[in-house]
């Protein structure tokens, strides 16, 4: 339903924009139309609203297909309902399980292995997201290895992801130097390609990455793999300030967030806080998928500093 309506609107907008370019006087009408932003990416919309409301965005990470894709999307829905209650704007990051993840720690790697052993496929993830999208406006970002994207054909993958209902992707092993064509496709199709910045990123690379990132910048706050950590690195604030000098998009910080204290500290510097392993571990410990209270309770606890 939603999909067909939005595609009609896109065509309308393209038609108007085409007219506008040939007839300068149409510009006014086109501009008026754009105010409605019928096609604005959900991620942009969310950050724009969050900025207005002075809210920090919550970015939970879930492994698609652990224990199965329907369960993952049910958990996503439950988390979203909870964050709505709390008034915390939310973007879901959905990890595509990969056999050889380089940047992930044991918690997420185990989840990937469980999902793959359970037979998860790229197609099943797209199908699950398409179904979810029928009833949800939760912005969705895929976290997917280039090994998967490349095998599916990059343009086909991006198109299918967008059609399924994703709003953008993070391809962690596709550095900015290799990402040009994916970025071009994304820009043409209102699909975000989120770039990573690491603590080891040298100042001369920052402007290049910042310029290439759409949607938001994912700042990996600690060198190394994903996983829960107690303390935030001491140089975090300086790093985030440095990124902000070059960035025209919001900055979300991830890697190691495990409790509300960290969320509170990070929220002072970041536009969004990413929580991965701490959630994935709790999903793994769920006794039954029908009762996700332990996860929503954790989310409530985690987001206490952000709740209204």
């Amino acid at each position: 339903m939603l999909r067909s309506r939005s595609s009609t609107r896109r065509e309308y907008r393209v038609a108007i924009a085409g007219a506008a370019s040939s007839k300068g006087w149409m510009k006014g009408i086109n501009g008026l139309f754009l105010l409605e932003r019928p096609n604005m990416n959900r991620i942009d919309q969310l950050f724009e609203q969050a900025k207005k409301d002075k809210r920090t965005v919550f970015v939970p990470f879930l492994t698609a297909g652990d224990p199965d894709i329907n369960a993952t999307m049910k958990i996503a829905g439950d988390i979203h309902r909870t964050t709505k209650e709390l008034g915390v704007p939310t973007i879901l990051e959905l990890g595509f399980p990969y056999s050889d993840p380089m940047a992930d720690g044991p918690t997420i790697q185990s989840a990937y292995n469980r999902a793959l052993d359970g037979g998860i496929t790229v197609q099943a993830i797209f199908d699950g997201v398409r179904e979810f999208r029928k009833t949800s406006d939760l912005p969705l970002v895929g976290m997917v290895s280039y090994a998967i994207v490349y095998r599916k054909d990059p343009t086909d993958f991006l198109r299918s992801a967008k059609e399924a209902g994703f709003d953008g992707v993070i391809i962690p092993d596709l550095p900015v130097e290799e990402s040009e064509s994916a970025r071009a496709w994304g820009e043409k199709n209102e699909f975000k390609l989120i770039q990573l910045v690491a603590p080891t990123t040298r100042p001369d690379r920052l402007p290049k990455i910042a310029a290439a990132s759409t949607g938001f910048i994912y700042y990996i706050s600690v060198a190394g793999i994903t996983g829960e950590r107690r303390a935030l690195p001491p140089d975090l604030i300086e790093r985030v300030k440095a990124i902000r000098e070059h960035s025209r998009v919001p900055i979300c910080i991830g890697f190691g967030v495990s409790g509300p204290d960290q969320v509170k500290q990070l929220s002072e510097w970041a536009d969004g806080v990413i929580v991965g392993s701490a959630l994935v571990r709790r999903v793994a410990e769920l006794p039954s998928i029908s009762d996700t209270t332990s996860i929503t309770d954790f989310v409530r606890h985690l987001l206490e500093p952000l709740a209204r």
Partner: peptide
């Protein structure tokens, strides 16, 4: 200069490793 042998090679690693490789 990009580490390419024809279409092969290159660098497909997380940003965390780019500094080390440089």
């Amino acid at each position: 200069s990009k580490g390419r042998f024809g279409p092969y090679g290159g660098r497909y690693v997380p940003e965390t490793l780019m500094f080390a490789l440089d």
